[in-house]
Amino acid sequence: MSRMPLGSLPQTSQGRVGGLVEKLTPGYFALVMASGIISIGLNLSGFRALSIALLVVCIVAYVALVVLNVWRFAGHRAAMIDDFRDPKRAFGFFTFVAGTNVLGTRIAAEGWHTATAWLLTMSFLVWLVLGYVIPWSAVLGRSERPVVALANGTWFIWVVASQSVAVSAATLEVVFHDARQSLAILAVFSWSVGVFLYAASAIIVSLRIMLYELDPKEFDPPYWVSMGAVAITVVAGARIVEMDSAPMVDATRGLIAGLSVVFWAFATWLIPVLVAAGVWRHFVRKVPLVYVPTLWSMIFPLGMYAVAGIYLGRADGLPIVEAIGSKWLWVAVTAWVIVFVAMVRSVSQALVVPRRPRS
């Protein structure tokens, strides 16, 4: 009996799901990040029902992605290891840390502080491990040089992960009085690390843009994380400013408050630059605008900028900054709805098994 070619084997729905799991992008937790941060913004603005709806999406997406990543590790470990070694994809794993803390911060607003503490503990440990493993496996451990030629916008997700730890720690510092000193140290420590990581990532990514040819297809949505990383630095700073008195906080409160305003201004400046880059990519260079999972890395910065304005305006008494954040929130909501619908359509089409013609 002759063997049927592999390509002609009928593909079942289960096989398609397995194929999608194998190709699952490490940065898909950006869906959790985007949904969670917009839910936080809606909650801060008093839109309770919409906020709860986004919280439900955030929780469901988080659980589903954890299950899918465990499945991928068990059944497609080689593909996951390849991602760890790829400088263009490896930093996407930090979306798990950021997504975990965004979810934790949101559920803290519901009074679920113990769950937030457990999520912070887990994310902090993962952040520490990935912070040493990924730079080595994806950058320092590679024989190819120069590695800077492979840098892209996903590198800023490391910054976002660091600042998400600071936000979560600052959120819990006012609740767990016995752990106040430790949480204050953790918040200031991770905020400071995030600031220096942003400077390093910005230099490396800027060198990549200036020194090497840039294909329009490579200037993808994760470059928006360069703005989102600044915005979450603002939020983390504002939350630290609002923390109760502690030696680490008291020593840095004035510095962090001032720098947060500067970072907000820089994030605002970056928005027209990134919009212009998108126009160049899609309208000048004609790259098709279709759904890709990395679009969530664009929605998160939009929501993060809105929340940054709201938090900073309230923490530092800047009404105009709060007003800008409140208005921008609806830009983020609109973008989230568009991308979510596109994602549902894309996944549905990928799972549909074409009917075999009758003989």
Rank of each mutant, 00 (worst) to 15 (best):
R281Q: 00
A251G: 08
A308V: 06
W296Y: 15
V292E: 13
R281P: 02
A323D: 07
V307Q: 08
L302D: 02
M227I: 02
K286A: 11
P222R: 03
I324E: 09
G254P: 00
F300T: 05
F263D: 03
P272T: 08
G313K: 07
A229P: 03
S226P: 05
P288W: 06
L312R: 08
W224A: 06
G254K: 13
A236T: 02
P288T: 05
S326E: 14
D244W: 10
R281E: 00
V230I: 07
W224E: 01
A277F: 10
A267R: 04
G325N: 13
S326T: 14
V249S: 10
I320V: 14
I232L: 04
I271P: 03
P301C: 02
G228C: 07
P247Y: 05
W296P: 07
A236D: 05
Y305E: 07
P272V: 13
V287H: 01
M243Q: 09
V249K: 14
V230L: 14
V279H: 10
P288K: 03
A315R: 12
A257T: 09
I320K: 08
V230N: 06
S226C: 04
V275Q: 10
R281H: 01
S226R: 02
P221W: 00
V284N: 01
F300E: 01
P301L: 05
F300W: 02
A276C: 11
G317S: 09
M227K: 06
Y291I: 03
A236N: 00
Y311I: 00
T294M: 05
A308N: 03
I256Q: 06
Y311R: 13
L274S: 09
S226T: 15
L274W: 06
L270E: 08
I240C: 03
I310C: 03
V292P: 01
A323Q: 10
P221R: 01
W296S: 04
D220Q: 01
T252A: 15
R281D: 00
G278D: 13
P288C: 06
P293Y: 02
I324P: 01
V241M: 06
R281L: 00
G303T: 06
A236V: 04
P221A: 03
V290T: 14
T233F: 05
M304H: 04
V273N: 14
M248K: 00
V275M: 13
L274I: 14
W264S: 14
G309H: 05
F283R: 14
T294Y: 00
F283K: 13
L255Q: 13
R285V: 03
A277H: 13
K286G: 00
W269F: 14
Y311E: 15
V225K: 02
V235S: 12
V292H: 07
V307F: 11
I256E: 08
I310L: 12
W280T: 13
L318G: 07
V273T: 15
W264P: 12
A323C: 02
L295C: 00
